[in-house]
């Protein structure tokens, strides 16, 4: 808009609108908090949308037990600092079965400890709406998703039969057992997220900033040795390397990039020269063709 509001303010306002619609239309919403930069932005927007009240829904983290230790510390510190209710769900059955990313493979680990675990948690608390921080610029099947994305009672997504979504007239109606996944950051790009973090001074996990970290190079990916559960293979050795992460997940499945960017400004500058997408560091996306769509149909966020 010519004399109107800036690009970021427009995105901010759109996201706040979405969050307020959810608070008004659902009985039992929850915010899926994955601790990453997008979750940090999403949480910040929720604080703004409901100020001076606190967001009228809890945060929930689906913990695979393989997250970086820094992430868990940041999660607990954030919830305490803001005085928000935080639910943490672990698929105990998966833990008992000994599912882990090294031996089980990334596909099974993700299926059991993330997708199944998420469904368990949603069923356990009976949430009828769940916010996720996904953006349409991340991945091809995400680009197709609605802001209010309907899920059947079995949490399935039917991409070929999505509800038309016109204007801001979001259809929030569901029958018992069904739910809506809500993506308030749909129209944000990775660059928007970083610019906003910079403009608003939003706290993020230190892993995003470059630092010397213990790294093993495995299959061309730089894996950080975050704890002693990581066993070295023949010929592998741990090196201190100056790295940072563009995206955060389970540490054995998240590739680091070599970088000297240790401030937000430097990260944004680096973004302009980046030649790979942020999801490239995610080993789980490249398991099989159309793998994100497949996971989403099964209930993954």
């Amino acid at each position: 808009m010519k004399q109107g509001i800036s690009h970021l303010r427009r995105l901010e306002a759109e996201s706040m609108y979405v969050m307020r619609e959810v608070a008004s239309s659902f009985a039992n919403p929850v915010m899926l908090y994955s601790i990453g930069k997008d979750s940090s932005v999403m949480l910040h927007l929720a604080l703004k949308a409901f100020y001076p009240s606190k967001p009228p829904f809890p945060l929930m983290h689906v913990d695979t037990t393989w997250k970086f230790r820094d992430m868990i510390a940041f999660r607990d510190e954030t919830a305490a600092r803001l005085g928000l209710k935080l639910l943490v769900h672990v698929n105990e059955d998966g833990v008992k079965r000994g599912i882990n990313p090294f031996d089980s493979g990334s596909a099974l680990h993700t299926q059991v400890m993330k997708t199944e675990s998420l469904k368990q948690a949603l069923d356990k608390y009976g949430f009828d709406a769940a916010f996720g921080g996904a953006r349409r610029d991340e991945e091809k099947s995400r680009a197709k998703e609605r802001i209010f994305s309907f899920r059947s009672a079995t949490h399935a997504w039917d991409p070929k039969n999505q509800r038309p979504e016109l204007w801001r007239a979001y259809n929030t109606r569901i029958n018992k057992g069904e739910s809506i996944r809500v993506f308030p950051l749909s129209n944000w790009t990775e660059l928007d997220v970083w610019q906003y973090i910079m403009a608003e001074n939003i706290p993020i996990v230190p892993l995003y900033f470059a630092k010397k970290r213990p790294i093993v190079e495995r299959d061309g990916t730089l894996i950080m040795v975050d704890d002693d559960r990581m066993k070295l293979k023949n010929g592998e050795k741990v090196e201190e390397r100056l790295v940072r992460f563009r995206t955060l997940g389970c540490y054995p499945l998240t590739g680091a990039i070599e970088s000297e960017a240790d401030t937000i400004e430097a990260i944004v500058a680096e973004m302009f020269t980046a030649r790979t997408s942020e999801r490239q560091g995610r080993l789980i996306d490249s398991d099989e063709k159309a793998s994100m769509e497949k996971k989403k149909k099964e209930g993954y966020f």
Binding site: R136, D137, E139, K140, S141, R142, A143, K144, P159, K160, Q162, S186, N187, T189, K289, A290, E293, K294
Partner: peptide, 20 residues
């Protein structure tokens, strides 16, 4: 831009995709 499996297989666009 044809991000859905069915779209790529059939070479058509089924749903709207947003690009930036």
């Amino acid at each position: 831009v044809d991000g859905l499996e069915a779209e790529r297989e059939q070479g058509i666009t089924i749903d709207v995709a947003y690009r930036f």
